[in-house]
Design a protein around this nucleic acid. Structure first.
Length: 89
DNA sequence: CCCCTGACACTTA
DNA sequence: ATAAGTGCCAGGG
């Protein structure tokens, strides 16, 4: 269980869990905070295939402001959540 | 100025 | 080990 790649995944989940309400973070920012500044694409893959209910992955968006992928009900659900939280105004 | 494509880094199966 | 999926950057038209 103590593999470097898994550590990165755990770090990514941990940093996303730490995102405050009403705040959004890009995949690149999350990847950089997780310890791999060039793994922005890996963050998307992690979220896409291994989503954790404790992780507000809906607060993680693309660098250009798009929402990216979402496996938790649909993109419109993600927008609704962010809008309700105040991350999208 | 805007739109599209290729190449890259990393994970999961 | 390979293939598929995802997001960012750079270049070309």
């Amino acid at each position: 269980m103590i593999d470097l790649k898994k550590k990165f995944k755990e770090q990514v989940l941990n940093v996303v869990k730490s995102i405050p309400r009403g705040r959004t973070m890009t995949y690149k920012e999350v990847a950089q905070r997780a310890g791999s500044p060039g793994a922005c694409r890996a963050v998307g893959s992690i979220m896409a295939k291994n989503f954790d209910p404790k992780v507000p992955c809906h607060r993680v968006i693309k660098s250009d402001g798009s929402l990216g992928n979402y496996n938790r009900g649909g993109i419109k659900k993600k927008m609704a959540l962010l809008r309700k939280e105040g991350a999208l105004r």
